[in-house]
Amino acid sequence: MPPSEETLTRLHADYAVSAYRFAWSVTKDELLAQEVVQELFLKLARDAAVVAQAESERAVIFTLTRNLALDALRRRSSRQEAMERFAEELPGWFVPSADAEAEETRAQITAALAALPEEQRSVIHLHVWEELGFREIGELLGLPTQTVASRYRYGLEKLRAQKHTLV
């Protein structure tokens, strides 16, 4: 059963930006992330029960977003092509700065995040930008809390190691 226009409007207002950022962190491609969010809301427009029956609508939104993003990546002809494009584009969540040193730092952070495996990058994104706890991330991704914590720790270790090589 399709949701009411009011429900769909609320879901879009509450989750579209976060879903886009998360899809972008998985796909590393602005246009593909936009397509994932479009597909997400088309899916929600067709069947609101998927969210209405959920214990946590936020968890459902991020689970659907992740699954749609991974499906989109599988459909792409080459994962390497996506990585090369990511290296050339600035991420949408960093605000451009007039300070050249700040821009360089942001570019280094972006490159460091891009170098992480998808599992670690997703966990870091959900924890840092979406402010989800490890237990909540585990439920969202279908992983034990310890695995989520380990992926977060390993990702941070890799980022720290890259920071030392950049300084």
Score class of each variant (00 low, 15 high):
residue 5 E to S: 08
residue 81 E to R: 13
residue 137 I to S: 03
residue 151 R to Q: 13
residue 134 F to G: 02
residue 55 E to H: 11
residue 101 E to V: 13
residue 73 L to Y: 03
residue 51 V to Q: 03
residue 49 A to Y: 04
residue 13 A to E: 13
residue 88 E to K: 15
residue 89 E to F: 07
residue 91 P to F: 03
residue 118 E to S: 04
residue 43 K to G: 03
residue 73 L to S: 03
residue 131 E to S: 06
residue 58 R to H: 06
residue 124 I to G: 02
residue 61 I to G: 02
residue 42 L to R: 12
residue 159 L to T: 04
residue 102 A to L: 13
residue 118 E to M: 07
residue 76 R to H: 14
residue 40 L to A: 07
residue 85 R to Q: 09
residue 45 A to P: 03
residue 99 D to F: 05
residue 85 R to E: 11
residue 160 R to I: 03
residue 157 E to D: 13
residue 117 P to W: 13
residue 8 L to F: 06
residue 29 D to C: 12
residue 4 S to D: 07
residue 98 A to W: 00
residue 17 V to W: 00
residue 74 R to Y: 14
residue 8 L to P: 04
residue 78 S to H: 12
residue 95 V to T: 12
residue 142 G to Y: 11
residue 88 E to Y: 09
residue 95 V to A: 04
residue 15 Y to F: 07
residue 137 I to P: 08
residue 91 P to A: 11
residue 7 T to F: 01
residue 149 A to H: 06
residue 58 R to D: 06
residue 57 E to W: 08
residue 29 D to T: 10
residue 59 A to V: 12
residue 144 P to T: 01
residue 40 L to F: 05
residue 57 E to T: 09
residue 17 V to K: 09
residue 11 L to N: 00
residue 121 R to P: 01
residue 18 S to H: 10
residue 8 L to N: 08
residue 55 E to L: 11
residue 4 S to F: 07
residue 73 L to P: 05
residue 102 A to Y: 02
residue 39 E to N: 13
residue 32 L to V: 04
residue 164 H to V: 14
residue 103 E to C: 09
residue 62 F to K: 02
residue 44 L to A: 13
residue 164 H to T: 14
residue 31 L to N: 14
residue 139 E to F: 03
residue 25 S to W: 09
residue 120 Q to E: 15
residue 123 V to N: 06
residue 25 S to R: 14
residue 2 P to R: 10
residue 119 E to A: 15
residue 89 E to C: 09
residue 23 A to S: 12
residue 91 P to L: 07
residue 122 S to M: 12
residue 26 V to S: 01
residue 49 A to D: 10
residue 75 R to W: 11
residue 77 S to W: 12
residue 3 P to V: 07
residue 29 D to G: 05
residue 56 S to E: 06
residue 4 S to K: 08
residue 12 H to Q: 11
residue 76 R to G: 10
residue 63 T to G: 11
residue 72 A to C: 13
residue 54 A to V: 11
residue 114 A to I: 08
residue 153 R to F: 09
residue 114 A to V: 07
residue 137 I to L: 09
residue 127 H to D: 06
residue 70 L to P: 08
